[in-house]
Amino acid sequence: CHSECLGNCSQPDDPTKCVACRNFYLDGRCVETCPPPYYHFQDWRCVNFSFCQDLHHKCKNSRRQGCHQYVIHNNKCIPECPSGYTMNSSNLLCTPCLGPCPKVCHLLEGEKTIDSVTSAQELRGCTVINGSLIINIRGGNNLAAELEANLGLIEEISGYLKIRRSYALVSLSFFRKLRLIRGETLEIGNYSFYALDNQNLRQLWDWSKHNLTITQGKLFFHYNPKLCLSEIHKMEEVSGTKGRQERNDIALKTNGDQASCENELLKFSYIRTSFDKILLRWEPYWPPDFRDLLGFMLFYKEAPYQNVTEFDGQDACGSNSWTVVDIDPPLRSNDPKSQNHPGWLMRGLKPWTQYAIFVKTLVTFSDERRTYGAKSDIIYVQTDATNPSVPLDPISVSNSSSQIILKWKPPSDPNGNITHYLVFWERQAEDSELFELDYCLKGLKLPSRTWSPPFESEDSQKHNQSEYEDSAGECCSCPKTDSQILKELEESSFRKTFEDYLHNVVFVPRKT
């Protein structure tokens, strides 16, 4: 048989008469490798580009789960590009990614509803959504962080984005990388972005840091009482949809009607710091009717980097990364020049730590249904340095008659930039024990000054392991946590139920 035959053949030295091919099969003959313009397919066939392209389009058009959109890589027609490569849609070739590779997620039936953290986790790592997304989240724990972890990498949506009755959302900033909504599939009414009845939605994105392009379709905003109209108009300008909307697409009466839409800028007039305090004062603000001013709200939190936005980490279910302080308005003076500047002394802060701070007014709604208010920009203030805590785990070892090696770990709280350490030492008198000992005694162990690591005695271990207080009263049991108490109650309830079950099964009433 021919060298490319495997198993047997019907005619000697003829690659077209093989029972099976050793390498690849091409047009009725066995070959060692697939010549151009053919590609290896499933490690035994040679196919042309049209064959591989037909497989790709067949799966793409069917949208069946589990099928493969075949691509070409290293002269092979394979189910998908290997790690580190992405497909070129024009020629199906796998090309190296520039940075992290995109991950295209194809949605069944063309859309997916995100109504819980669990459903959001199914899209973790996706960068391109081939379909439409509907966000409908009523509640949950730590929602802002969970949504950002699972949806934060999405850069492109081919269909539309719909935010509907998501009472738990305060902001859409968890879509931190969303840059493009194509609108290839539109919501009824030709809408590519749809926001309806979101009672706590206050911000779409921080438009000073976020760009969003909507290729096709219109915007729809109705019944978002805490979303200011200025935020919607800003989205029109940034996304390129200005002029597409009709009169009733953006409701003037049901958007922002319960919001404090600040239209003035508060400026800080005085800032002073110490290692654990920050004193702030800002310019006074009074609405047209000074009785509408209820006070100020001061927001602050630790910020290692200057990239904080107002609604980071917030949701309507209680999660809030900001510390909020309510401040009463100052006494009002008739003389504008003698107006008191409101302020606040922030206490209990960490030394040498940068804080993000902003302040906003708290006002009631005027009778004319106009909203007044003022808010400052987010500023960054760093507390002063102070003395560091003591170095940890000092170790001293003498390696000769004239040297001592000293080692330690950095302090747990540096409280500033540590530039150097101060080492103090003092000579001590020799131990009298060394002169009084009889060095001729056998088995004498000389006193040693070398360091030995501390260890816990058996008594201390027994005390720590004991669940009861000892007789001397030195140790006591740790208080039980809520989960331990709940577990004990469940076990007790189970024992009672099981005992009742045994009584009912074992003891049967005697027939009379």
Rank of each mutant, 00 (worst) to 15 (best):
348 G>T: 15
322 W>V: 09
324 V>E: 11
224 N>R: 01
274 S>Y: 15
234 K>F: 08
151 L>S: 01
397 V>L: 07
274 S>V: 03
411 P>H: 04
112 K>V: 08
301 K>Q: 13
389 S>N: 14
174 F>T: 05
221 F>I: 15
369 R>H: 03
243 G>E: 13
235 M>I: 13
315 D>W: 01
179 R>C: 13
232 I>C: 04
374 A>Q: 15
150 N>C: 04
289 D>Y: 10
231 E>G: 15
350 K>A: 07
385 A>K: 12
355 Y>F: 07
342 P>H: 07
224 N>T: 05
386 T>S: 12
239 S>E: 06
370 R>K: 12
305 Y>C: 00
347 R>N: 07
360 K>A: 14
138 R>C: 13
373 G>Y: 14
378 I>Y: 02
194 Y>K: 07
220 F>T: 08
207 W>Q: 07
119 S>V: 12
193 F>E: 00
296 F>Q: 10
321 S>G: 08
210 H>Y: 14
344 W>Y: 07
236 E>Q: 15
400 S>R: 07
115 D>G: 01
120 A>I: 02
284 P>S: 05
157 I>L: 04
219 L>Q: 02
398 S>M: 07
335 D>S: 08
304 P>H: 03
312 D>C: 03
125 G>T: 05
164 R>C: 15
261 C>W: 04
165 R>S: 15
382 Q>W: 13
314 Q>F: 15
268 F>A: 03
279 L>F: 13
180 L>G: 07
256 G>W: 04
379 I>R: 06
353 T>C: 15
286 W>H: 01
237 E>S: 07
174 F>Q: 02
252 L>P: 09
360 K>W: 14
295 G>W: 15
369 R>P: 04
347 R>S: 06
278 I>L: 15
150 N>G: 05
400 S>Y: 14
245 Q>M: 15
391 P>T: 04
242 K>G: 14
159 G>E: 00
229 L>D: 09
199 Q>C: 03
191 Y>L: 06
340 N>R: 03
244 R>P: 13
180 L>M: 11
343 G>Q: 09
243 G>M: 12
135 I>P: 00
164 R>T: 13
300 Y>G: 01
326 D>I: 02
306 Q>H: 06
127 T>W: 02
316 A>P: 13
340 N>L: 11
266 L>V: 07
137 I>L: 15
379 I>S: 05
179 R>L: 11
409 K>Q: 15
227 L>P: 00
394 P>C: 15
176 R>K: 11
291 R>P: 15
294 L>P: 05
108 L>M: 14
283 E>T: 11
158 S>R: 05
211 N>F: 02
162 K>C: 13
365 F>G: 15
179 R>I: 12
247 R>C: 04
185 T>P: 12
125 G>W: 07
120 A>W: 07
201 L>F: 09
150 N>K: 06
152 G>T: 01
384 D>P: 06
192 S>R: 00
323 T>N: 07
179 R>T: 08
155 E>M: 05
306 Q>R: 11
345 L>G: 05
410 P>F: 12
280 L>P: 13
409 K>N: 15
173 S>R: 10
366 S>L: 02
103 K>N: 02
183 G>F: 12
239 S>F: 06
206 D>L: 13
290 F>K: 02
226 K>P: 02
161 L>C: 07
394 P>F: 02
160 Y>G: 10
266 L>P: 01
164 R>L: 13
184 E>M: 03
161 L>I: 14
342 P>K: 09
162 K>V: 11
175 F>K: 00
401 S>M: 06
292 D>Q: 10
316 A>Y: 12
170 V>W: 11
224 N>H: 10
294 L>R: 01
317 C>Q: 05
119 S>P: 05
402 S>R: 09
158 S>C: 13
206 D>A: 14
119 S>C: 15
200 N>T: 02
134 I>R: 06
409 K>F: 08
273 T>W: 09
267 K>Y: 15
376 S>M: 01
373 G>K: 06
305 Y>H: 11
335 D>N: 05
119 S>M: 11
171 S>A: 09
209 K>E: 13
301 K>S: 11
152 G>D: 01
295 G>A: 09
142 N>S: 12
173 S>G: 08
248 N>Q: 03
255 N>Y: 07
176 R>F: 04
266 L>F: 07
350 K>C: 09
344 W>P: 01
342 P>I: 08
296 F>E: 02
167 Y>L: 15
320 N>T: 12
295 G>F: 13
237 E>T: 14
257 D>S: 03
411 P>N: 01
344 W>L: 05
219 L>G: 04
171 S>I: 01
160 Y>S: 10
217 G>W: 00
199 Q>L: 12
363 V>L: 12
321 S>T: 11
126 C>S: 01
368 E>W: 12
317 C>F: 10
382 Q>R: 10
395 I>P: 01
232 I>S: 03
229 L>T: 03
166 S>H: 02
259 A>Q: 13
391 P>A: 01
282 W>G: 00
139 G>E: 08
334 N>S: 10
146 E>F: 04
299 F>C: 02
198 N>W: 00
301 K>R: 10
120 A>R: 02
331 L>I: 08
140 G>A: 15
177 K>G: 03
274 S>L: 13
371 T>Y: 03
119 S>Q: 07
157 I>P: 00
356 A>N: 00
127 T>Q: 06
406 L>N: 14
341 H>W: 11
130 N>K: 05
169 L>E: 11
126 C>I: 01
